[in-house]
Amino acid sequence: MARPFDVRRQRGFTVVAAFCFALLYLPIVVLVTYAFNAGESIANWEGVSLRWFVAAAGNAQVIDASIRSLQIATAAALIATTAATLAALATTRTAPYRGQAATFAALNLPLMVPEIVTAVALLIVFARIKMATGYTGLGYLIAAHTAFCIPFAYLPIRARLDGMDLNLERAAADLYATPVRAFRHVTLPLLWPGILAGFMLAFVISLDDVVITEFVKSGGQETLPTYMLGQLRRVITPEMNAISTAFLALSIVVVTVFFLVSRKRD
């Protein structure tokens, strides 16, 4: 009897799949393993130890860069999610209008523009503003991160709104809810998982950005990724592995928390 086509029964499927997974995860497994190395090398195993985690935790530069990364990611993700929520409401909860397609394009274009182009453009514009105002604070990095985070925050929020019946807001209005109260009691609670997903995505994207940060940052404004990049050019010790492992753990925690929260909401 002829069986229906099943990609899993094709010759060589298992080998290809195993190879792809190995390529994805083996380097990470190696990286995490050597974070616990007792020796100075990232290639020779000399026993289990937490010394590199202790070293990283005691490294003032690492702590400084981590705090800055979290500050930028939190601020950028908050602003980007707010802007993306408003943009998503405006593009889905209104009657179709002229230029709607252009609005979508403008919102999503940053995903297509090569990051290096944005980085150079921002470098030039910010350099002028710095000269004119003398301000050299974190504002530039937060503005830059906000800009490239908006489309990432927009996508899950828009997807959530697309699946939401417009009659729900009509029903709320029909039942004496003013537009503000309809938003507060119906739209916002239903949109919440989408907003949370948008925030998490924006947060993670901001946290590990290198290219734009490298171009935009002023002196002494290292973030964790740019600090690590700088260190890798010099001596490589398992301290880098330890920092990366902590970074990975943070991402897993963030994603897990989001998953649990969104599941409870539905």
Binding site: R170, A173, L175, P179
Partner: peptide, 20 residues
Amino acid sequence: TPPFRRPINTVFQNYALFPH
């Protein structure tokens, strides 16, 4: 008059119950 000031209520075709 906007719908939230009309003493008229609607049963929608797809019910539009609030899922949350």
